[in-house]
């Protein structure tokens, strides 16, 4: 594993927020200048609970440039043999900038055969999309990729 590092920043932030309602997060705290916005972290905790977030095993594929944020092709995959004993249970796509951080949660399992899912998502502007995979042993893994969403020449309406 090349990037087996706990996301300490995210965890400590979350701990500091224990007890606050998820809806209050964005208004209670300013966005960190360089970090991921809090509601993306909150969404991850909402879906997957309090486990340690490890970096690695998850790959997010996005185009470098999207000419319209209404539809951006994304592929999320996780490094897993997808057997009965060792497989991906769930994978989530999380946005730090969209009005709703949670974009999709995929349910896989040993019968999925391969932990790779493609779809098309909306992106409210340039951002780094995160994907989190929950393995059959309960461990959580995160990967990310970013896309520049360009502005159209003529905005109608």
């Amino acid at each position: 594993m090349k990037n087996d590092r706990t996301d300490e920043l995210t965890l400590s932030r979350r701990l500091a927020l224990t007890g606050l309602g998820a809806g209050m997060l964005s208004s209670a705290l300013p966005f960190a200048a360089l970090g991921e916005p809090e509601d993306a972290d909150a969404a991850i905790r909402d879906i997957f609970g309090d486990g340690r977030l490890n970096e690695g095993k998850v790959t997010v594929k996005l185009p470098p440039i999207a000419e319209n944020g209404n539809s951006v092709a994304i592929t999320v995959s996780a490094d897993s043999p997808m057997t009965e004993e060792n497989h991906v249970r769930r994978m989530a796509i999380i946005s730090p900038r969209n009005p709703i951080a949670e974009i999709a949660v995929f349910e896989l399992g040993p019968r999925a055969g391969k932990a790779e899912v493609s779809t098309r998502i909306r992106m409210a502007g340039t951002q780094r999309i995160r994907a989190v995979a929950e393995m059959s042993d309960g461990s959580l893994w995160v990967g990310s990729a970013s896309t520049v969403v360009t502005l159209a020449a003529c905005v109608i309406g």
């Binding site: 502005l151 020449a153 003529c154």
Partner: peptide, 8 residues
């Protein structure tokens, strides 16, 4: 040519 993010 470019017009904002678009190529005309």
């Amino acid at each position: 040519e470019k017009l904002r993010g678009d190529t005309i």
